[in-house]
Design a binder for these strands. Structure first.
Lengths: 215, 215
DNA sequence: AATTTATTGATAATTAATTGACAATCCGCA
DNA sequence: TGCGGATTGTCAATTAATTATCAATAAATT
């Protein structure tokens, strides 16, 4: 790491996308790439790519470009994808179930170790090799297993309470799909709010106004 | 609408969040609110809220603030939530099914009118009152029904082809959940890429570096 | 009705993000 | 081994986004 100023959110949000594109290049046998060529593929400027990467270190070489495999692995490390953070998911409804089965937690630095719901009809069921536990066991489980990340796929009304409970048990990060912004009041916690509804409304605005969105 | 300069993406992306908060206020019986109070609830500056809203019109009144119901409805109109754009969903796997059942399309300006998949085991099944059709009927359906928006919950490899097909049939907007960036090459199309994997990696980065993310 | 208070809308100032430019330097080749 | 072409890393310039300020004005109060 080169500079120790805080890296801006805008830069961090682009890292996964770099990682994804580099992964594809790697898969198709490309071993080196210049910032210019990558910029064309990704729809960015070459300058931005070089600027972004140099927040973390000088990974390229003049006259050559970037070694795809090395850069891919560097970005993976920067993102922390090798950590396997213990992760639980609360709320195994339609969406929770889909997240549990569809997302590759392992390749994103997470390890899914527990599923929780309040619905007695599904407690005990297996989803993706993990048994659905009663949400009443949530706190005991957390004190024993000390998960770091919680995925919340629960109704809006339940979110505040569950969040507070989990924080009290030591959970430090939330991937929140509920219609509620986890935010203020919980300063020492990492939150990524995924508001699918907001995303769809943005699309609707785009349709109405004939715009193109940026990724 | 006051100014006719293009409104920036940053502003548009905040509109759904305003809409959500105003909806909650409305639900809890609040009839008026000042930019300052709303800013405190939302974790923004009052200045930003006033600035954002004034891109679309002067909805407030000096010495009073904003009438919650009126502003809620204004933002709904700005977003186009009353249009009921015809929408189809392609790929009724775990995630597609969850989206189809979990998202309230109606309240986001969309009307879900078709589900498509290639898996013969699920074709014919009903999901949320809509029958799953064979993806081979996709083009005929689109020429007949002229959907405007397509939700894509399909594998990466299939995305490019399906997208092109749909564009050829007149689909103008994509809500894309596949691991692929619909973007370049399709300039006259509105795209909202939802990369859940990217979002989780961003969270992992936050955990590793003990950051707080912004919404 | 006049006065005070609150709060907007608009503009200016500031800060942040992106893009451009170029010297430094590394690769590839003769 | 030295030379030419390519491409980085860095810094400066530019553009975009956010925040602060304040006159204008409407509501509330006296």
């Amino acid at each position: 790491m080169q500079k120790n100023e805080a890296v801006s959110v805008s830069v961090v949000k682009r890292l996964p996308r770099y990682y994804r594109f580099l992964g594809e290049l790697l898969g198709s046998g490309v071993t080196r790439i210049s910032s210019r060529e990558l910029s064309e593929r990704m729809g960015l400027t070459a300058s931005q790519i070089r600027q972004d990467l140099n927040h973390f270190g000088g990974f390229g070489q003049q006259g050559y470009g970037y070694h795809v495999e090395a850069l891919y692995s560097e970005i993976g490390n920067i993102l922390g994808l090798n950590h396997g953070y213990k992760t639980i998911l609360v709320g195994v409804g339609n969406l929770g179930r889909a997240i549990a089965t569809h997302i590759s937690f392992e390749t994103k630095g997470c390890r899914l170790i527990g599923l929780f719901d309040s619905n007695p009809h599904i407690i005990g069921e297996m989803v993706n090799d993990i048994i659905i536990s009663d949400v009443r066991d949530l706190e005991r489980f957390c004190r024993e297993e000390q998960p770091v990340i919680a995925v919340l796929c629960i109704p809006k009304q339940a979110t505040r309470d569950i969040t507070q409970k989990l924080i009290d048990c030591g959970v430090r990060a939330f991937w929140n799909f509920s219609h509620y912004d986890i935010a203020l009041g919980h300063p020492n916690v990492v939150v990524e709010n995924v508001h699918l509804g907001d995303s769809l409304m943005t699309l609707t605005y785009g349709v109405k106004n004939n715009l193109r969105q940026t990724p």
